[in-house]
């Protein structure tokens, strides 16, 4: 099966000191791929590179068969219709209510009548379990609801791949578990692939098909979750330590 997204020896830096070096991985259709690592080690930057928001200093990014460094801006925008992105701070448009936020990509890209837009938005809201919040503005809502709304917006155009930046950070355990379950449901019911960057390994580990551990500019290991537990790398073992006693671990699994 071809990779939906493939990074080949990607390096990046904001200034003279490198932030990411020689990062390579691929994500297949219907796969949940987790990039885990400590804060400030370039996880969000890596996700932005995947979406073409940042250009790597070297290496290539191939998204759905197109090399992002070779295609014009207009083609990149076309590709992004197959892509959903959930920002760490949700990044909802603050002067639009939740309904209009989710309807925005539909109104912009599709020629749909109001009734269809209403139906599609309601379906997304129901999927993320925040039906009833349509008329509220982002500033009136908790971060948990905002993140759910951001996921609903990312799903608006029925993407093949969703990129999630720390979707469980700042959420209570119930909301975190709900986000994790939603990612699994999207995979099972719609075949949506997900790349999630997080430091919250407790919720990520059980739902992941594969995990990559990012540390000191490099992906130390990319493997199946169970195999990573037996990794010979000291940092990987240290990072994953404590998982076995995590309350969410065995319950969320499967």
């Amino acid at each position: 099966m071809n990779d939906l997204l493939e990074l080949e020896r990607v390096s990046f830096s904001y200034d003279s000191s490198p932030l990411l070096q020689d990062i390579s991985f691929g994500v297949k259709e219907g796969e949940i791929f987790i990039v885990a690592g400590q804060c400030g080690h370039g996880k969000s930057t890596l996700l932005k590179i995947c979406a073409g928001l940042l250009k790597p200093k070297s290496g290539t990014v191939r998204l759905m068969g197109s090399f992002l460094n070779e295609i014009p801006e207009i083609k990149l925008r076309e590709l992004r219709l197959e892509l959903g992105y959930v920002f760490q701070n949700a990044a909802l448009i603050f002067n639009l209510n939740i309904f209009e936020n989710i309807a925005l990509p539909l109104r912009y890209h599709k020629r749909l009548d109001e009734e269809t837009i209403r139906r599609l938005v309601a379906a997304r809201l129901e999927l993320v379990k925040i039906l009833g919040y349509e008329k509220r503005f982002p500033a009136e809502l908790s971060m948990g609801i905002r993140k759910h709304a951001a996921i609903a917006r990312a799903l608006a155009l029925s993407p093949r791949l969703i990129l999630m930046d720390e979707p469980t950070s700042g959420l209570d355990p119930i909301n975190s578990k709900s986000v994790a379950e939603l990612i699994v449901a999207l995979k099972k019911e719609y075949g949506v692939s997900t790349i999630m960057v997080t430091h919250d390994i407790h919720y990520a580990f059980p739902i992941a098909d594969r995990i990559g551990i990012l540390n000191e500019q490099q992906l130390l290991a990319v493997d199946l979750p169970q195999r990573l537990l037996k990794s010979e790398n000291a940092f990987v073992r240290n990072f994953l330590s404590g998982l076995a006693v995590s309350p969410g671990f065995s319950k969320t699994k499967g």
């Binding site: 448009i93 603050f94 990509p105 890209h109 917006r153 990129l163």
Partner: peptide
């Protein structure tokens, strides 16, 4: 607040 980036990733 990354709303411009949010527009970009929506293909807007």
């Amino acid at each position: 607040s990354q709303e411009i980036e949010a527009l970009e990733v929506m293909g807007i």
